[in-house]
Simulated assay, not measured.
Amino acid sequence: MTRVIILRPEPGAGETAARAARLGLDYRLCPLFEARPVPWTPPPPEQFDALLLTSAQGARLAGPQLAAYRALPAYAVGGATARALQAQGFEEVVPGDQDGNAIAARIAADGHRRVLHLGGRTVASIAQGPLSIQRTVIYEMVSRAGTELTGLLQPGAVLLIHSPRAGEKAAMLVPPHERAQLHIVAISPAAIAMCGNGWASAQAPDFPDDERMLALAAQLCE
C-alpha cells in the first residue's frame, strides 16, 4: 500500500493521522517542527478593525490574551484556523480561500483597514493593498532533526506539506536524485514552490485545508 507521510507538527499531525485512518490510508508521522509559544504583549484592540490569523497554531498558542480581540471581525486562512478560533470563543470567523493574499483582499473588500495579524515568527508575505497590517509574533516553529524521514521513504510515498517552511525543510532532507518516485501534496502553491523540483508529482487543493489534502493523497494511493 502507498504510504502517506505526515510532516506537520502536533497537534495538527494527530488530527491528520485520524483523518488518514478513517480513509484507510497507510500513514506515518514525522513532524519536522514543534510549535512553541513566545511571550507577547497584546496591542490595544481599539487600534484595529479586524483580526487575522493565518495558522491554527496562532489560536492554540496565543494564550488568554487572545480573548481581548473577540469583539473584532475575525478572518482565518483555512478551515482549521477558523475552527481553532471558534474553539477560543470567536463566534463569527470568516475562512479565506487560498492564502494570506486572498484573505487580505477579502478583508479590504469588507471595508476594514487596520488589521492585527497574530502569527508565527516566520510567515509568508502578504500583499497588503489598502490595508495597514500590524504583525505580532505569538509563537515560533522550532525545527526538529527530521533524520527519521529517510527511513520512512519508499517508492510512491506521498509527503504531506502543510506550510512553505515544511516544504523548505523537506527539500533539504530529500536530495533531488531521490525525489523521482515521491509525490508532494501541499497546502498551497507557495508551499509547493518551497519543495523544489524533481518530484514525481506536486499538487495543492483548491482550498487550503487538511481534508482536501488527504483527498488528493487518497487519489494517489489508489
Rank of each mutant, 00 (worst) to 15 (best):
A124F: 04
A124I: 04
I126Y: 12
A127K: 15
A127F: 12
A127R: 15
Q128C: 13
G129N: 10
P130E: 02
P130D: 03
R135A: 08
R135N: 10
T136R: 01
T136I: 01
T136D: 00
T136N: 00
V137R: 00
V137S: 00
I138K: 01
I138W: 03
I138A: 04
Y139A: 02
Y139D: 02
Y139H: 06
M141C: 08
M141A: 14
S143M: 10
R144T: 08
T147P: 04
E148H: 11
E148N: 12
E148A: 15
T150I: 09
T150E: 15
G151Q: 09
L152F: 12
L152R: 07
L152T: 09
L153Y: 06
Q154T: 14
Q154R: 14
P155Y: 05
G156M: 02
A157D: 09
V158D: 04
L159Y: 02
L159A: 03
L160F: 07
I161D: 04
H162R: 07
H162W: 13
H162M: 13
S163W: 07
R165N: 08
A166V: 13
A166T: 14
G167I: 00
E168Q: 14
E168F: 02
L173W: 05
V174Q: 01
P175D: 04
P175K: 08
P175T: 05
P176R: 01
P176N: 04
P176A: 01
P176I: 00
P176S: 03
H177N: 12
H177I: 07
E178V: 03
E178T: 05
E178M: 12
A180C: 11
A180Q: 13
Q181E: 14
